[in-house]
Nucleic acid binder design. Structure first.
Length: 214
DNA sequence: ATCCCGAGGG
DNA sequence: CCCTCTGGAT
């Protein structure tokens, strides 16, 4: 895509959704970190369903530790991948208590040192909680980047670096959410809504079916 | 059968 | 590089 097309794309996304935000529900940075950690290969809807009751029982690292492994697993079982997520979350809580005074650290290095927290989760926390212009590349942004040619990288890291270069600076802080929402509701994996996509005319991707025709 | 705001381990 | 982890929705 040409620079002017990219500019126009983000202008459209910004106009349609001036204040984009995550669809994960959270009331603190710790809850945000927890929700994002739990969201791997799961839908936001299923994560929210579980965390609404989980956060009543445990909304701090210490309370999460008090809940215990089996108690936590029971709360997040419906999300999927629950054995490793429960184990990682408790290990993370131990580190938060022991090394960070019960707070969520603000640097990429400290975040990615937490079990269950990789580059993508760290990017989300840095962006959503601390306002940094990071680009968390999840399945939606990866797919959208490749389909449209906006960021045709072969790995999430490559796509992230391409987006950080190509997204106009003025749109960088919110670009993560605009792209994720576009990927989730328009450039979706199955039957994308190309007829309501702002960059369809600049996009080479031709789906076999769209939800309009089928 | 495929997909969902991935990360860790081999 | 590959594989595994997992329930729920479509």
């Amino acid at each position: 895509m040409k620079r002017a097309d990219i500019e126009a794309f983000f202008a459209t996304l910004a106009a349609a959704n001036p204040h984009p935000q995550t669809e994960l529900e959270y009331a603190s940075v710790f809850e945000l970190l927890t929700a994002v950690l739990l969201s791997a290969q799961a839908t936001d809807v299923s994560v929210n369903k579980a965390t609404r009751s989980l956060f009543v029982l445990a909304n701090t690292p210490q309370k999460m530790l008090d809940l215990g492994l089996e108690g936590l697993e029971a709360q997040i079982k419906t999300i999927g991948l629950y054995h490793s997520k429960a184990r990682h979350l408790l290990q993370t809580c131990q580190i938060l208590v022991a090394q960070h005074g019960g707070q969520v650290p603000r640097t990429r290095e400290a975040l990615q040192a937490l079990p269950g927290v990789g580059r993508k989760t760290a990017n989300v926390v840095l962006n959503v909680a601390f306002g940094e212009p990071t680009m968390a590349v999840d399945t939606h942004i990866f797919r959208l980047g490749n389909r449209t040619g906006l960021a045709p990288g072969k790995t999430p890291l490559e796509v992230e670096q391409q987006l950080l270069k190509r997204v106009p600076a003025a749109y960088l802080v919110h670009a993560h959410h605009w792209l994720i929402l576009h990927g989730r509701y328009i450039c979706q994996a199955r039957a994308p809504h190309c007829w309501q996509c702002a960059v369809a005319s600049h996009c080479d991707f031709k789906p076999k079916t769209t939800s309009k025709s089928s």
